[in-house]
Design a protein around this nucleic acid. Structure first.
Lengths: 189, 189
DNA sequence: CTAAAACATTGTCCTATGTCAACGTTTTAC
DNA sequence: GTAAAACGTTGACATAGGACAATGTTTTAG
């Protein structure tokens, strides 16, 4: 159950078995169904999620009812509604599992407790933030001035499994293009 | 000279005078001219910059020679080519002062030394990352699906001084629209 | 102070991509 | 297992906004 998480941690920091067990002890398993909502709009996010199996998606719905996908975390990744989690403000987004998933959940209290007491965990969090920051940057700036075709090529290069893993509709809403356009582009490669 | 930095720090953490002086001792003043380059494309970024006066801009130039502005830091803000600074990889961007500016500079070595030895400084860095992350998120997601008019309204709401402070061209390249379009929109409010 | 360069504004035109609709296929729910 | 709903694909059409150019203004360099 905890292998994925342990692998994640050992690949990023050196830590004693005792501390590893301590960290794991704060994570509780959670099985979810397809399209299960973890954080609702305007809810204050209290949990951080590690994806053991399945996939979580962060998205919004605008006033016209159109969904926009913001972020996906697959097996071995962390995810949450981070702005709300950090600031404890109502989330301007939804978090859901788009497939039947197995997650490991840690409460915000425990999370920040670990950050405050375990330097190795603080380092892990710093790396999550640094990586998240860089990833977000690359995505914005990678997309700046890109036309639809370039965006699709970008995602194929940077997240090769992405288009195979998520629906056409979700992929399009992540890339900021219409499903029709994505469909047309895929048909020409 | 260090008032701005001290103000920044005291507004975010509680710290003794001695530690404050220690932190400040690692920052050296730097005066720059308009359009002075701080980090070149493919250079590895070794410094973090605090803006006392003036403004720094992060930007790229694509193969067609068009500039894209990624980020601006004004008085009281921190800025650097963060992905390169973090990973010590060649920067895929330029950092410049767009006005005559007064900066406070800390080397990466000293910066991470402070992060590693002063918990208060580690907290500050964590907050910079968290805030940077949230800001980047808001910008991407705020822009997702926005048309040109909505982007301009967004920037007016979220950074009211922005359009007054930077040139039409730079503002347009930040918003991801053409200078002509921005000009037309401004003329209609 | 002056010449040159960069920039801002605005008009005309054109294209990428969104919208809508039709149709077939897959998924869902009971 | 079956009906209904959601989704994917493709065509026809409409449009936001980019490219380019002309003109006037501001900034820069010496």
């Amino acid at each position: 159950m905890y292998e994925g998480l342990k692998k994640y941690i050992t690949s990023r920091t050196v830590i004693s078995e005792k501390e590893m067990d301590l960290i794991c002890s704060f994570f509780t398993p959670l099985k979810t169904k397809r399209n299960e909502i973890l954080v609702r709009y305007e809810e204050i996010c209290q949990q951080y999620y590690f994806v053991n199996k399945g996939c979580i998606r962060l998205f919004t719905i605008n006033k016209e009812g159109t969904e926009t996908s913001r972020f996906f975390a697959f097996e071995g990744g962390f995810g949450t509604a981070l702005p709300s989690f950090i600031d404890q403000q109502p989330a301007f987004e939804y978090l859901q599992t788009i497939e039947k998933s197995e997650l490991l959940v840690i409460s915000r209290t425990d999370f920040y407790h670990l950050v405050a007491t375990l330097p190795e965990f603080a380092l892990l969090y710093r790396e999550i933030l640094e990586l998240g920051f860089i990833t977000a940057q690359k995505r914005i700036y990678g997309f700046q001035g890109f036309d639809a075709l370039e965006k699709v090529k970008w995602i194929i290069t940077n997240q090769p499994h992405f288009l195979l893993r998520v629906s056409n509709k979700m992929a399009a809403s992540y890339l900021g293009i219409s499903p029709s356009t994505l469909s047309r582009i895929k048909s020409k490669l």
